[in-house]
Amino acid sequence: MIFLAMLIMGAVIGFVGAGGAGVTIALLTLAFQVPIHTAVAVALAAMTFTMLSGAYSHFREREVEVPTGLAMGLGGVMGAFIGANVSNLLPAPFLRTMTAIMLCASALLLYTKVYQAEWLSRRFHPRQELLTGGKLYRLGIITGMVNGFLSGAFGIGAAAFIQITLMVLFGVSLLKSIGTCMMIILPMSAAGGLGYFFTGHLDLWIFIQTLTGQAIGAWFGAKYTHLAPLPLLRFAIVATPTIGGLSLLLM
């Protein structure tokens, strides 16, 4: 049943082009009564493999700012591993609530990017030139640790937060922010997954079902992204994390 549910979830993830870690957590905990710590561990570990193919594809297309990705990725690894170990100490109800809040915050940011792009550009002026030198690595490690901690502690990919950070603080273009974001999330989710594995929360059988179902479903879902009407695609991008976050928060 988990495999079949993740097959459908993978199709949704492939359609909207999002990692779906937070929605995976909501589905596992609400539909299958998987403990929240285990659900977070499975979602992060599965996201590692999802990001692997995406990051490689963008790298081949030269859509990745490698120095920026390395700087934030290094900080993200440290932050995610620390976050996973901190999460192990949190009571399940508190962790569930915080994961829901982070999902809702991510959905709000996605809504602003998709529907209020002009307002966002007036409030947050993207850096015009690419950040380089020592400041790149100092700022990259700090922001990477913050995003990595949020990802490792609460099981979200933090893609929306990372992309905004890349454009506003590091001067990465919109197109390259997507590929660079995947490069950053890849080691971040791997470090978070390892952190949960060492604390005994990663259920390998649930992980295999989740990863296999989402990989197959995402392959089919991605085929319909370019065929869907733009209003439907925009709605789905925002609605997916919103439903996951509100479900965790209210049910």
Results as ranks from 00 to 15, higher is better:
1 M>C: 14
236 A>H: 01
123 R>E: 08
163 Q>L: 12
151 S>C: 09
52 L>A: 15
107 A>H: 00
186 L>F: 15
188 M>A: 09
218 A>D: 04
117 A>N: 14
208 I>L: 15
98 M>G: 12
109 L>R: 05
126 P>N: 08
215 A>Q: 11
4 L>Q: 03
117 A>S: 15
20 G>L: 02
187 P>N: 11
171 G>I: 08
23 V>G: 08
45 A>E: 06
241 P>K: 00
111 Y>M: 12
167 M>Y: 05
90 L>R: 02
208 I>V: 15
144 G>D: 06
213 G>R: 04
99 T>I: 02
14 G>V: 04
49 F>V: 14
137 Y>F: 15
79 G>R: 01
209 Q>F: 11
137 Y>H: 13
64 V>T: 07
127 R>T: 10
96 R>K: 15
195 G>H: 00
50 T>E: 12
215 A>P: 00
218 A>V: 08
204 L>K: 12
54 G>D: 07
200 G>H: 01
189 S>Y: 09
190 A>N: 07
90 L>V: 13
116 Q>L: 15
199 T>A: 11
183 M>R: 06
246 L>A: 06
238 V>K: 04
87 S>F: 03
97 T>V: 14
236 A>C: 05
207 F>Y: 12
147 N>V: 12
116 Q>P: 07
142 I>Y: 10
196 Y>G: 00
46 A>I: 07
200 G>E: 02
106 S>H: 04
39 A>H: 03
88 N>W: 12
83 G>E: 00
182 M>D: 14
165 T>L: 09
249 L>F: 12
92 A>R: 08
132 T>I: 11
33 Q>H: 14
50 T>S: 13
135 K>N: 14
113 K>D: 13
65 E>N: 13
152 G>W: 02
209 Q>K: 12
106 S>T: 07
228 A>S: 11
189 S>Q: 15
204 L>F: 15
114 V>F: 05
78 M>Y: 09
235 F>A: 13
42 V>C: 01
156 I>K: 03
22 G>M: 09
5 A>L: 13
210 T>M: 04
33 Q>P: 10
112 T>K: 13
78 M>C: 10
40 V>P: 01
63 E>T: 11
173 S>A: 06
38 T>R: 07
184 I>Q: 05
33 Q>W: 09
61 E>I: 10
144 G>R: 01
136 L>I: 07
219 W>T: 15
71 A>G: 11
76 G>R: 02
75 G>Q: 05
136 L>R: 05
199 T>K: 13
225 T>I: 11
202 L>S: 11
203 D>L: 07
51 M>G: 10
38 T>G: 07
92 A>Q: 11
72 M>D: 06
57 S>P: 00
161 F>H: 07
62 R>L: 08
39 A>L: 03
187 P>G: 10
146 V>Y: 06
73 G>E: 02
105 A>F: 15
180 T>W: 06
220 F>E: 08
9 M>S: 13
228 A>F: 02
249 L>G: 03
152 G>M: 01
182 M>H: 14
93 P>C: 08
140 G>P: 09
101 I>Q: 07
26 A>M: 09
90 L>N: 02
202 L>P: 13
54 G>S: 10
66 V>P: 08
57 S>Y: 14
125 H>W: 09
93 P>F: 06
246 L>V: 09
41 A>L: 00
85 N>E: 04
13 I>V: 05
73 G>N: 02
86 V>M: 09
185 I>T: 01
110 L>S: 04
28 L>W: 00
1 M>N: 15
161 F>P: 01
